[in-house]
Amino acid sequence: MPTEFPALLGAGLILLFIFYLGFLSIKIKFPNVVMYILLGIFLSDLVADSELLHFASEIGIVLLFFLLGLEFNINRLGGIARRIWPTGLLDIGLSLGVTTGIALLFQLDLFSSFLIGGLCYATSSSITAKLLDDRGRMANTETEFMLALLIFEDLAAPIIVAVLFGIHSGEDLTVVTFLLLAGKIAGLALLAILLGKTLFKRFEAFLDRIDDEDFKIALLIGIALGYGGFALYLGLSEVLGAFLAGMMLAEIGKVEKVEQTVYPVRDLLLPAFFVYFGTTIELGNGIPMAGLLLTLVVWSVLSKVLVGVLGGPMYGISKRASLRAGLSLCARGEFSVVIAGAAAGMLKVFSGIYIVAAAFTGMLLFEQASKITNKLYGKPVKKKKNLKVPR
Score class of each variant (00 low, 15 high):
Phe230Met: 10
Ile223Ser: 01
Leu16Trp: 02
Ile281Phe: 03
Ala344Thr: 13
Leu155Asn: 06
Ile167Ala: 11
Ile14Val: 12
Met138Ile: 14
Ser124Ala: 14
Ala11Met: 13
Val176Cys: 00
Val307Leu: 06
Phe17Ser: 15
Leu155Ile: 15
Ser318Cys: 10
Ile252Lys: 06
Ala189Pro: 04
Ile372Leu: 13
Leu164Gln: 09
Lys383Cys: 02
Leu207Ile: 09
Phe114Tyr: 08
Phe215Lys: 02
Leu236Asn: 04
Gly316Tyr: 02
Val239Ser: 05
Leu310Asn: 08
Ile355Leu: 14
Leu190Asn: 03
Lys254Met: 03
Tyr263Val: 15
Ser125Ala: 13
Glu282Met: 15
Arg266Lys: 15
Met35Cys: 03
Leu310Gly: 04
Ile210His: 01
Leu365Cys: 13
Thr3Asp: 07
Leu364Glu: 09
Leu249Asn: 08
Val33Trp: 00
Leu110Ser: 12
Lys27Trp: 00
Ile26Ser: 15
Leu387Ser: 13
Ala11Lys: 02
Phe366His: 12
Gly166Gln: 09
Gly345Tyr: 00
Ile160Glu: 02
Gly79Pro: 02
Pro390Gly: 12
Gly78Phe: 09
Arg391Ser: 14
Gly183Asn: 09
Ile167Cys: 08
Thr174Ile: 08
Leu199Lys: 02
Leu219Ile: 11
Ser25Ile: 00
Thr3Val: 11
Val255Glu: 08
Asp134Met: 10
Phe17Thr: 12
Leu16Gln: 09
Leu53Met: 09
Arg266Ala: 03
Gly235Asp: 04
Ile18Gln: 08
Thr295Phe: 11
Ser370Leu: 05
Gly78His: 04
Ile355Ser: 10
Gly246Ala: 06
Glu171Phe: 05
Met248Gln: 10
Cys120Ser: 08
Asp267Ala: 02
Gly40His: 06
Thr174Asn: 07
Leu77Ser: 04
Leu119Tyr: 05
Cys120His: 01
Ala48Asp: 00
Val389Glu: 13
Thr99Gln: 07
Leu296Ser: 04
Asp154Tyr: 06
Gly118Lys: 05
Arg83Leu: 10
Glu144Trp: 00
Gly253Asp: 11
Val258Trp: 01
